[in-house]
Amino acid sequence: MTEWLLDGLLVFTLLMTASATLVSRDLFRAVVLFIAFGLVMAACWVRLDAPNIALAEAAIGAGLSGVLFLDAVSQLRRGQTRKRSASADQSPEAGT
C-alpha cells in the first residue's frame, strides 16, 4: 500500500512539475521547474529498478541540461532588455 502511495505521489509530482514547466509565464521559472522535473525523473528511475539511468539522469537531466538552459535564458534575456530600451528610445509608441 505504501509503495503504491509512493509511486502515485512520484508520478503525480512528475506530471505537476512538467505541466508547471509548460504553463509557467516566466521563462527562468520554467527552466528551474524543468530542473526539478529532471530530479523527480531520477527518483522515478530508482523506483523503476534502473539505477544506471538514474545516475545518468541526475547528472544530465538535472545538472547539465539545466545549466545549458539557464545560460541560454540569461543570454537571451540580457539581449532583450538591451533591445527593448534601445527601441523605446527610437520609437516611444512601440511599447504600447
Partner: peptide, 21 residues
Amino acid sequence: HLLRKLLAFNIMGSGIFLILV
C-alpha cells in the same frame, strides 16, 4: 518561444523513455 518549445520537446522525450522502461 523557441526555448519553451525545446523544454516541451525534452519533456516529450522523457515521457517516451518512461514508457519504454
